[in-house]
Design a protein around this nucleic acid. Structure first.
Lengths: 327, 327
DNA sequence: GTGAAAGCGCTAACAC
DNA sequence: GTGTTAGCGCTTTCAC
């Protein structure tokens, strides 16, 4: 392995000067050129491990998400990656499966590995971020704002719920159900509140039978649709799907039960990039997942650079895209 | 930060003994207990950076893939992660966008960071893995076997192409087209060969007009379908989609053009987890992406443990799942 | 079985 | 602006 000592010897300077060249510290142009030449001929690559040990901080950002198989989170990951790479940081993706214990394990690793900071979509209400923040490491929450006093980038969940519901109601639907994620996840509750808002704003009654707290997964959408149609109450004529995966499940099950799009309108909160359906065949409230990632990464990089300011929460609006046909 | 020196002092032993306890080297039970007690009261966590600098190897596996937003690769990533975590390794996900330059950058980082090994789905024919392998780091290729003399885990692509095509032909289709990825990617060519095989095995003529090399993305499927139907030749009555994303594009466009499933059967090589379609409404050849990940991870861990043997290529078969209705 | 001591490659005082 | 030097926390000979 070639080290700064080898480069220093060949360039006729001290190791410290080599280090300075690589850290943007003032060095005479003459010596800097000699160092660059020597480094090139020796094919020198700085050893990041040694640098990390010495400076107590690695050029790495941990990205902790609850479900790596959900396109919503991978789209966000792309946003984080792009901004981080530009600033010379690597991104380490950690998948928690929504399990607070796994999550705690990753937080520990991130601290132990001296990672520069973390962007996290918390697993749930049991998440404990104090281990990381108490080590004074910068952290930005995404998608779900934890109670902790930290920077956060979230979606306008309540407004998204209201927009999705409103689109169905305004299209003449009168019994619009709502299927969201677990009750202990705030994004689920907020989207449900939006569903309620849309009814109240139009002077309509709210039937709580039509509100279902499930999982934010395909299976959740499938199960809830069955429960709605197999129960004693009247069938709904519209469904608001609380996220992309629930939307997939609802659409699958609607097809399997041979329910017509006329008979049951669906509006999804989130995008369906792999739905295999004609464009604009389903009403969606697009959530800017990639923007969430880039925004979070920029906030984090500011903190890493030592910017001092009050923690802030950035709220990103969704965009209603109405189905071209009966949704 | 608490170090092995602090633990040693409290336990009344030398730092070397503390190190031995953490590395499974023989230590008297008495002293080992003292060390564990001291470590517990001080909340000691070994510093991995220092360990890496000293041993020249980190407990990290690099997972390099061309498209983090493709569910096929994220499913594989889950498999890798699960096996790696069990063995005490962290996984770092690197997204290349199919860009050999980006890929080269990640290979460099992996070497510089002393990562223990790498699992890679190569970006393309320009990929150069020698930088990594010449540093004597273990590497396992997945999905796409590079020319290099390395371990690899791939799908039975030709057989998958034949199975998908055969399902359509046996259902009475007579003009079955095939849309695969770029011609310079071997998986694309192999799947196309399978399409050819299926025809020849049935004594049918092969019309090369029906074979399209596109990108392995949604857009590729959309564009190719349009080209097939807008060209001068007769319309196809069946399409083999060369991967999951092409399948999504084909199904989208089929719907948008209001082409009936009766008029155009589709068989997809790969799974469609988020297709929002009724179960078994499309014929698919399921590819065991997760298994590919776990198998690759196990091979890699063997190499990391120093197992010596000839490089091997594991071929994983797909599973034909016929559509219940006219596919 | 155990301890002393050197050193992995780098950075940051400090002295010049 | 530049060189000397100590040391980040750990592992690993080498002696005992």
């Amino acid at each position: 392995m070639v080290t700064i000592y080898d480069v220093a010897k060949l360039a006729g300077v001290s190791p410290a000067t080599v280090s300075r060249v690589y850290n943007g510290v003032a060095v005479s142009e003459e010596k800097a050129a000699a160092v660059r030449d020597a480094a090139a001929t020796l094919q020198f690559t700085p050893n990041r491990t040694a640098r990390t040990l010495r400076t107590q901080t690695a050029q790495i950002i941990a990205l902790v998400i609850p479900d790596i198989e959900n396109p919503y989170f991978t789209e966000m990951a792309r946003g984080v990656e792009d901004v981080a790479a530009e600033a010379g940081y690597s991104v380490v993706l950690c998948n928690t499966d929504g399990d607070a214990t796994k999550e705690a394990g990753y937080l520990g690793i991130a601290v132990a590995a001296h990672m520069a900071g973390m962007i996290i979509a918390v697993a749930g209400p049991d998440s404990d971020l104090t281990g990381f923040t108490s080590a004074a490491r910068p952290l930005v929450a995404v998608d779900r704002a934890p109670d902790a006093y930290v920077d956060a980038v979230v979606m306008a969940n309540r407004a998204a719920g209201e927009a999705a519901t409103g689109a169905l109601l305004d299209a003449g639907r009168s019994r619009v159900a709502c299927i969201v994620g677990p009750h202990d996840i705030a994004t689920a509750r907020d989207r449900a509140l939006g569903w309620r808002d849309a009814h109240l704003a139009r002077g309509l009654e709210v039937d709580d039978e039509l509100l279902r707290y499930e999982s934010f997964r395909v299976e959740g959408g499938r199960a809830a649709l069955d429960a709605l149609f197999d129960g004693d109450a009247d069938d709904p004529d519209g469904i608001v799907a609380g996220n992309n995966l629930i939307g997939v499940g609802v659409l699958q099950r609607r097809g399997e039960r041979s329910i017509d799009a006329e008979a049951l309108g669906v509006a999804v909160i989130g995008s369906l990039p792999f739905a295999a359906l004609p464009e604009a065949s389903v009403t969606t409230v697009r959530l800017p997942a990639r923007d969430m990632g880039t925004t979070a990464a920029r906030l984090l990089l500011e903190r890493i650079d030592g910017v001092q300011r009050e923690p802030q929460t950035v709220v990103l609006p969704g965009t209603l895209v109405r189905a071209a046909t009966a949704g």
